[in-house]
Amino acid sequence: MLGRGMLKGLWVTLQHTISSFTSGPRRFPKRYLDGPVPRPEPSTQGMLTLQYPFEKYEMWPRFRGVLVHLRDPETGQSRCTACMACVRACPHGVLTVTGEGKGRERRAKTYTYELGRCIFCRLCVESCRFDAIEMGQEYEFVSTTQDQTLNLEEMLALGDRSGIKHTGEAWGQVE
């Protein structure tokens, strides 16, 4: 109405300008927070930008990061039995598994995970009934080629680092 709306708009942006200096954890002159950054409280004003290489969020427990293998504390090996369920479930043919042994002795010999093609959908984990794989919290795996792979050992090491004991811990699926 005769310029009032335009002035109201200016008032809103001015508020944002001021509150970007005065409110929130990153208020002036602070730019980077130290340590793992908590998720911001919902707000309408104030800085939200995550200064990525310097700051990182703590991921939610359910965050679907890179696929890891879980170690069986008794044998020290992966619980994978090379049943191929995950291979069939994967929509992109990311996984290749070869097994050795028969029956209950059957174990995975190799387990190849083509990182560059994974879409992090977690269908493989959902299909695995042997408590062998889970999606970890790590996400900084840049691959410059489509065929960058992780093998069983690497995935087990990642699983140790992630601290996950059982599949579906964070998903309310472990009794």
């Binding site: 001015l14 944002h16 970007s20």
Partner: peptide, 13 residues
């Protein structure tokens, strides 16, 4: 900087 601050961003830093 002015644009960024008005938009709750840092701008070049």
């Amino acid at each position: 900087k002015v644009l960024a601050r008005g938009q709750d961003r840092f701008g070049p830093n």
